[in-house]
Design a protein around this nucleic acid. Structure first.
Length: 255
DNA sequence: ATGGTCGGGCTCCGA
């Protein structure tokens, strides 16, 4: 079972890239972020034609997440459980072939001296609580998405330039570790412990060609899912196309 | 120190 996550930076602008990639990569499940369209305008028909069902929560202009799957998506939930419903479409969860899977668009959080950073940390606390509930089920679970977190210095090309960025702050990393240490396995880092691996390259300054990137798209596996982990990686091919997203798909394969 | 590039929706915001 191949599960991928891809921040497409507008699903409408990237529809052709997406459907072509579905055909060539043929993942069983794809987690999308930054749809940038309302739910009703999600290109459901094009994606169905490629052989995928979808569970979608969108909103106007910003955010928006989806799960695409070849098999049925059962019991979808369209928000992070919390006190009051979120006005930002950043979380969808569903079950595919017995695996509980979430597509997460974690808040960017910049600038750090603003309510946006607080919102990011609050969101991570809510995710921590949801993670605890999901682990308690002892089911195979995958928390995938654009986490907007560089877990360690190895996940950053230019540390100096990123020093004040929300993606590398000690509080951000601590909140990520707090989730990870509940018992999750970072699929890509576990199988590639000492490689420079990036999933995002800024549009500025030809960063992709120079491989000046960040690793911010992650797939976290519960113990039952981690037991089945056989491969993981990053597919850089869509990032090299004309008019690409600034992110490229990260994926893992479970037996 | 700054500005470089995108997408969306409207003359600016978020990344």
């Amino acid at each position: 079972m191949k599960i991928a996550t891809w921040n497409v930076n507008s699903v409408k602008a990237r529809c052709t890239h997406l459907t072509n990639w579905l055909k060539t990569a043929s993942p069983d499940v794809v987690l999308l972020q930054e749809l940038k369209c309302i739910t009703e305008e999600f290109p459901r028909l094009e994606i169905e034609a490629a052989g995928y069902q979808s569970a979608v929560i969108g909103q106007k202009a910003y955010n928006g997440v989806a799960i695409l799957a070849k098999e049925k998506i059962e019991d979808p939930v369209f928000a992070l459980p919390g006190e009051q419903p979120d006005d930002q479409a950043r979380y969808v969860e569903g079950t595919v072939s017995g695996v509980r899977i979430a597509s997460i668009y974690l808040p960017n959080g910049n600038p750090i001296a603003s309510p946006k950073f607080t919102y990011k940390l609050d969101f991570m606390e809510r995710l921590y609580r949801r993670g605890k509930e999901l682990l308690a089920t002892e089911a195979p679970v995958v928390l995938g998405g654009d986490w907007n977190v560089c877990p360690t210095d190895e996940d950053v090309w230019d540390l100096k330039a990123m020093a004040k960025d929300a993606l590398v702050q000690p509080e951000t990393r601590a909140a990520f570790r707090k989730i990870l240490y509940q018992g999750w396995t970072d699929a890509i880092r576990t199988l590639h412990p000492h490689e420079r691996i990036y999933t995002y390259w800024d549009y500025f300054q030809n960063r992709f060609a120079r491989d000046h990137g960040l690793r911010i798209d992650h797939l976290l596996l519960s113990p039952r899912a981690a037991d089945r982990l056989i491969a993981a990686g990053v597919d850089r091919t869509p990032r090299a196309l004309e008019k690409p997203s600034d992110h490229t798909p990260a994926w893992c394969e479970l037996s």
